[in-house]
Design a protein around this nucleic acid. Structure first.
Lengths: 193, 193
DNA sequence: TCATCAAAGTTGGCGCCGTCAACATTGTTG
DNA sequence: CAACAATGTTGACGGCGCCAACTTTGATGA
């Protein structure tokens, strides 16, 4: 007989998150089912409930993972960005953020859905705040310190988020000539208060 | 005996759309089911399939309705907006658009989801284009004609869309002091190319 | 006028899903 | 090594989207 699987999976919780992230991007949020996830991990349909009280709790965990990935990405890029010429910072910053969102559109969408958004868990909120802090430092580097800078960062963030969403949804009429490659040069950069 | 319902509903298709819009806003997209909708209209569970091939087709129709509502709203507001002092146009325009989105958040979210977005049907695309054209005229009124104005309108639109999404998701840290009432004064207005 | 036929609605059923209760196995710890 | 908590399994329930087969209705044209 072939090796039988051990009764306990070992690290089912993390495996569900990892497989969940893959399945999410491959088949979309609608197609993601706990049962299918469990089966693909060689585990019974009810096993996931030992680790997540409901399906939504798993989705929230996926979103939390997304916020952490984003925060890590921005923190790791910060130093390099701050070393650039001031005029080059915005474009590069938009590129990094946009590449993240457009390379994982389903995850990004989940992060900004009711289910996944940052207010639902302490971990989400903390990582969202980390990402926000990075954007803040970069905005400050772009234009020096300004009063009410958090509002200005929000403006910049709203523009960034809006662009990414429009691109993800293919809502940019093709004849306008804005693509996932060149959109940064058309995105608004805050100039003054 | 009480009046029995006639075998044929009369206008089930439109009734499904109307009830669907209400249910969508009241209980959210996840909770919307064709069976429940049918039952609330006093009709059997399979009746909706005479009018919509799948549930997604009904959702697309709801999104199309949303785009039409938005386009009508903007077209009806256009004249009044163009009569304002130039400096007041952006704030009022943002208010009108924002009020629409924030008063029907579930519909707005559906409109900008994969399922509902404007590329899926001719009717959606036509109405989205109408809305876009209105924003374009207003942008032109704000700052006069400019080269590449479509790109600038897109910038303005991305900012607007991004703000609305952040507000809808409660992603604005409360201590920043931006609310659904005053956000317009912080939103970016395009100045120059 | 009335037979005919397409449109619109019904019933029953399939398979998938999320979730739960009851039970089985395992690893840990006093 | 006994006891227990953590983890996994089975079986079942109700709800869902969707489909096939059937029924009722209203419009059409000979």
């Amino acid at each position: 007989m072939s090796e039988t699987q051990p009764y306990h999976h070992g690290n089912l919780r993390q495996a569900l998150i990892d497989t969940g992230l893959n399945a999410l991007e491959e088949s979309g949020l609608e197609a993601l089912s706990l049962r299918a996830l469990a089966e693909s991990l060689g585990v019974s349909k009810a096993a996931p409930y030992r680790h997540f009280k409901t399906k939504n709790d798993l989705l929230a965990a996926l979103a939390a993972e997304g916020y952490q990935l984003l925060a890590d990405l921005l923190e790791n890029s910060e130093e390099a960005l701050l070393g650039l010429k001031r005029s080059q910072i915005p474009g590069e910053m938009y590129r990094i953020y946009g590449d993240f969102a457009l390379s994982r559109p389903e995850l990004y969408r989940l992060m900004f859905s009711r289910l996944g958004n940052s207010l639902h868990s302490e971990r989400c909120r903390r990582n969202a705040e980390r990402a926000f802090a990075c954007l803040g430092k970069l905005a400050a580097a772009i234009q020096g310190d300004i009063p009410d800078s958090r509002k200005l960062i929000l403006s910049l963030y709203a523009s960034l988020h809006g662009w990414v969403m429009l691109l993800m949804d293919d809502l940019i009429p093709p004849e306008v000539g804005v693509t996932t490659e060149n959109w940064r040069s058309f995105a608004l950069i805050p100039k003054d208060t």
